[in-house]
């Protein structure tokens, strides 16, 4: 096996790394790039990042494991991050969770069989004024209700099928 960045990505990384006074400071951006490129951060990926950032693998492992926003297992094409912190909780986050679980037949931390969706619970997404809310990949979905959740999920399936054609 060999996990390596494509030439363009490596160039992109070098540009970022050059912005920092020390190379190890570029670790977080390197992990972001890796997650974008490989989908999730497997141990092989972490080992590779250690090589290009020039630090010890366990130090990369520490950082990757510290942040929940880094995925250590494969995630679906659409990754749902549902807020469970207080504002959302008061505004019905639990109903949102139930709706998602019923729709996708998954539990938090799991991925659907078709690998289309994965789902996890996260702490405050800093969008309390529009609680309850969730994030799908890079996008925010706000003022949710169970009906809205179903609508969104159906829409995403449709979108995926269209792209496939």
């Amino acid at each position: 096996m060999s996990v390596v960045f494509k030439k363009e990505v490596l160039d992109e990384f070098e540009i970022i790394a050059n912005r920092y006074p020390t190379r190890r400071a570029a670790l977080l951006p390197a992990l972001w790039l890796a997650q974008r490129e490989f989908g999730y951060l497997s141990l092989e990926v972490l080992d590779y990042i250690a090589q290009i950032v020039k630090i010890s693998p366990v130090q990369v492992y520490e950082v990757a494991e510290f942040y929940t926003l880094f995925h250590k297992k494969p995630v679906g094409k659409y990754h749902l991050q549902v807020c469970r912190t207080i504002s959302c909780a008061l505004n019905g986050a639990l109903d949102i969770q139930r709706a998602i679980e019923a729709h996708l037949h998954t539990k938090p931390g799991e991925i659907t069989h078709d690998k289309l969706f994965s789902y996890e619970l996260v702490e405050c997404l800093a969008s309390c004024h529009t609680a309850p809310c969730m994030r799908i990949n890079e996008d925010y979905y706000e003022n949710l209700s169970p009906e809205k959740v179903n609508e969104i999920l159906n829409q995403l399936v449709k979108e995926n099928n269209q792209n496939a054609i």
Binding site: L43, L46, D47, I55, V58, Q59, Y61, E65
Partner: peptide, 22 residues
Amino acid sequence: ETSELGIIHRGHESTLTTFPGK
């Protein structure tokens, strides 16, 4: 200066470890 050890996870889950397989 060999850096084989680190701490992963956070809070009460923090755990001392080597990189898996190393």
